[in-house]
């Protein structure tokens, strides 16, 4: 066991982990952060997406020990003060159905909008091409994001 410390949603956290523990499991089972979901454990689906130093990554492919001294942001951190404009748009456009992929997709798009507040449809698609959604057919997700870029209409 090794104690690691890192910033989780802007709060310092310490946790004891073994080298073979995966970040996703440590977040969910040792730190009570449940919004990142497990969908495939191979990096294929994106349900476990978290932001690592601001970048969307797969928490199922990262060892917990790797994030020592880094910053991790999850949907809990984004939602804490108030919903982001992106989250509001997701509500308005029904950009989710079962809701399982939503945390990952919202984080991936949060990174995109941070870097590029006015992405094209193509850039939006590229940013979430690794986040699978079986329910919505993606179109309502595009609509929500486009509504924020000033390019979209409902």
């Amino acid at each position: 066991m090794k104690e690691i410390s890192f910033m989780l949603n802007d709060e310092p956290r310490n946790v004891q982990v073994e080298p073979n523990e995966i970040l996703l499991d440590v977040l969910r089972n040792k730190l009570g952060i449940k919004s990142p979901k497990c969908g495939c454990e191979r990096g294929d689906c994106g349900a476990c997406t978290v932001l690592l130093d601001g970048k969307a990554v797969r928490s199922c492919l990262i060892l917990a020990v790797e994030v020592e001294n880094h910053n991790i942001t999850t949907l809990e951190g984004i939602s804490r003060a108030k919903l982001s404009a992106l989250q509001e748009a997701f509500m308005e456009f029904n950009s989710f159905q079962c809701g399982y992929c939503a945390p990952g997709i919202i984080l991936a798009v949060t990174e995109l909008l941070e870097k590029n507040p006015h992405p094209s449809l193509e850039e939006i698609k590229e940013s979430i091409a690794g986040n699978l959604c079986r329910c919505t057919g993606y179109t309502p997700i595009f609509d929500a994001i486009m509504s924020l870029t000033g390019k979209g209409t409902k």
């Binding site: 990096g43 994106g46 997406t49 690592l52 970048k55 969307a56 990554v57 797969r58 492919l61 990262i62 991936a108 990174e111 590229e126 940013s127 979430i128 091409a129 690794g130 986040n131």
Partner: peptide, 9 residues
């Protein structure tokens, strides 16, 4: 290669 989330790592 991969997707955004993979290419970041």
């Amino acid at each position: 290669i991969g997707s955004t989330g993979i290419r970041a790592r």
